[in-house]
């Protein structure tokens, strides 16, 4: 295990995780809203925001999948040390982390079952940047319309069509994040 694995976590978990959760909650309950977060310094290539989401939500009961370039020994050690989450293949993951392309094909993640739609994966999608320029969003959490710089529209449309099944996304870039639950309708701008 590298020395870096031991650093970059919460120094005061109860309050830092509480603030981080509120930011994530705000983002997921108001799709299109971009929030700024602090508190995690994960190893490259993870963004601060992606690291923070894992520190806040992952633990020994939530298998994590690392896709593509995110799957490095340093990242693995860091997640294992700070969260205890088992690292698994895509289909078993509660959380999956990587760039949008690395996460493809996106239909390999858990979408829940008709009786338990909550048993669906949350994808932590690393983006180079995050802005409110992009496809149109509508649905719960959104007054009229919102826009967000999504990497594409087709996959999100297909995911929304599965509602109440489907995966949910937390989009991360640097120290900013946005939420895109399966309930959001996505249309090209």
């Amino acid at each position: 295990m590298t020395h870096d694995a031991l650093t970059g976590g919460f120094s005061d978990a109860p309050t830092q995780s509480a603030r981080a959760f509120r930011a994530i909650l705000d983002a997921l309950s108001r799709p299109g809203t971009i929030v700024t977060v602090t508190g995690a310094t994960p190893p490259a290539p993870l963004s601060q925001a992606a690291g923070l989401v894992l520190l806040t939500l992952a633990d020994g009961t939530t298998p994590v999948h690392l896709a593509g370039a995110a799957d490095t020994p340093a990242v693995r050690d860091w997640i294992t040390f700070h969260t205890g989450a088992p690292l698994v293949a895509a289909a078993q993951a509660t959380f999956a982390l990587g760039t949008w392309d690395a996460l493809a094909p996106h239909d390999r993640f858990a979408i829940g079952t008709p009786e338990y739609p909550d048993r669906a994966a949350t994808l932590i999608v690393e983006l180079p940047s995050l802005s409110s320029r992009g496809p149109q969003l509508s649905g719960p959490g959104i007054r009229d319309r919102a826009t967000l710089s999504l990497p594409e529209t087709a996959a999100f449309k297909a995911n929304h069509a599965l509602f109440p099944l489907g995966f949910d996304c937390i989009l991360t870039a640097g120290n900013r994040l946005a939420g895109l639950p399966r309930s959001t309708k996505v249309e090209s701008a």
Binding site: L28, T62, T94, D118, G141, D168, P181, R182
Partner: peptide, 11 residues
């Protein structure tokens, strides 16, 4: 918190 987020995703 995980349960709350799934609740938000499936109102």
């Amino acid at each position: 918190r995980r349960a709350i987020l799934k609740g938000v995703a499936v109102p």
